[in-house]
Amino acid sequence: MSTGHEDNMSITREAARWYMELHTEGSACYEEFARWLRRSPEHIEEFLAITGVSRKLDKIDPQRRIDVHELMADQSADVVRFLPANNTKRTRARWTLGLAVAAAFVGGALLLLQWIASGSQTYVTHIGEQRVVKLSDGSMMYLNTKSRAAVDFSKSAREVRLVDGEALFVVEHDAARPFRVKAGNTVVQAVGTQFDVYNRPEGATVTVVEGMVQLSETSAVTQVHSASTTPTRLTAGEQADTRHGHIAKQAVADVKSVTAWRERQLVFRDEPLADVAAEFNRYNTLQFQVDADAGREPLSGVFAADRPDSLLLFLAKDESVQIERRGDLMVIHSRHAGP
């Protein structure tokens, strides 16, 4: 290569700078950029390479191992940190205004603290993504793949609405403010405990890992759940399914398998292949479709949730099924049944 290393690096820097310039709304100096591009093939190479690198970085830290908040806090270590005002009746609109004002005066650390402590927040995870959220009261919410939760804390109550998907809660004790999770019409109330809620279209499944929760069903969208219905108590190791207002309680042999998703593990014990496939589909863009015959095959095993290939490997050894690939869809047929 005739160009020296230094030279190359400065072109790389310019390319990156151009890339950012062009990808930010409202800044277009096309003519200058066109001239820059025409300078040499190296300019083109670097710009294309930056495009590639940028795309690759879209997949950066998918498991969110790096805590940006911590990074930010450290950067402003020399800034005096303020604790957020104890203003619990803050409304969303006032908060937005407050944000704008605060942004004008104070740097990142204070802003961040307020942002974390603000009234209502929605957390979303996409396919294959998991997120750990430390709530303002110190409770932890582990949000599983393809889930959505709205957190709303007030002076008298701590409420989380699990709109979609699954979450594990590790609740900090606070007798004055009950901790409630709403999943559809199901309300789970806890005081200092650990439990998992999986909200599916047909109903919610609640599993208690530690402590005790009270389970009740609400009608429609009433904010306060009615006291008239006797709540069902669930203690550690117990699980309940709710369907159409009916609560079915049962003991779970292995609570660990219910929360294994936190380690991105899927644990199956004699479960039909159709259910196993549905679980994998929650985590991956590669989807499984199982025909009715193959779907009944029982399966046991521990899999990495984000490795659908581990299931494929497993099935490849199974003589009774046949796998067919159609793009991002894996179709699993039974070999015994007709085509």
Binding site: T12, R13, A16, R17, M20, E21, I50, V53, K56, L57
Partner: peptide, 23 residues
Amino acid sequence: KLLGVPLDTVKSRIAFALALCRA
């Protein structure tokens, strides 16, 4: 807005990261 720094600073920070990764 979140970091309380000018737009240009953010752009050049990300550009720096891209360039370093490329290099």
